[in-house]
Amino acid sequence: MSDRGRRAERGIAVGFAVTVLGAALAAFGYVSGHDRLLLGLGFGLAFAGLAAGFTLWAARLLPQGPYVEEREPMRSPPEEREALESEFGRPAGRLPRRMLTAALGTLGLAGLFPLRSLLVHGPSPAVALATTAWRDGVRLVDQDGYLIRPERVVRGTMLTVFPEGHRDTGDSMALLLHVDPARLDLPRGRESWTVGGIIAYSKLCTHAGCPVGQYMRPEERLVCPCHQSVFDVLRGAEPVFGPAARSLPQLPLRLGPDGVLVAAGDFHEPVGAGYWRPM
């Protein structure tokens, strides 16, 4: 064997020796509890050794070609095509064939019905998407379930609130803010929806449904962290920047009999991302 060949064989052997070391390192890493770093590096080293060995082997010890392989054309000769096509004559008359089409068609349609079972909980989309758990008189609670008195909502706080008993809800969460009532410029008809500058909006962005989690003071803006839609708190949370096109729905508030904040009804429009609905 040539010098070059002998050198290559030694190189390959070194590569596989690295694999032995790597495997031993992996085993040691596992046993000693270094089960991410040493186990992973051990396996990595072992495979790197294999890769080096096989690369050298392929490049130095094996025939390099080039070899030439002829291709068959990717098209059957006409007589073969015709021979195959003649196997598929029409085995029956028109009536059975038509009936078979009808049979398979209805069977396929019937097979679609069980898909409805996938909708397991709750009402159909049109109802579920249009409503939340808020009703007139439902008390507001924070994420720990505590009721909320107005004096707790000091100017500048942002509090996430839920309808009492529905803290695990996916659509009812709202933001409670306290702004300067003199600066409020809400759409007409909402004058009574706030309690002394305390105002509540749906927390779900009207763009893609992300929780609108950032509050910028003193501009009184809400920012969605997902796609940077910006809403103007003072003007009914109308969108002023970004991909959201509709205002955050406002939750009408009033003071309950025991001095805690309660809702005065559900949101007046669907919360969260838009969907195919009459508008």
Binding site: L37, L38, G40, L41, G44, F47, A48, L50, A51, F54
Partner: peptide, 12 residues
Amino acid sequence: SGVLAVTFGLGA
């Protein structure tokens, strides 16, 4: 082997 070496190296 090379693909495995890279993925295990990254994983580690």
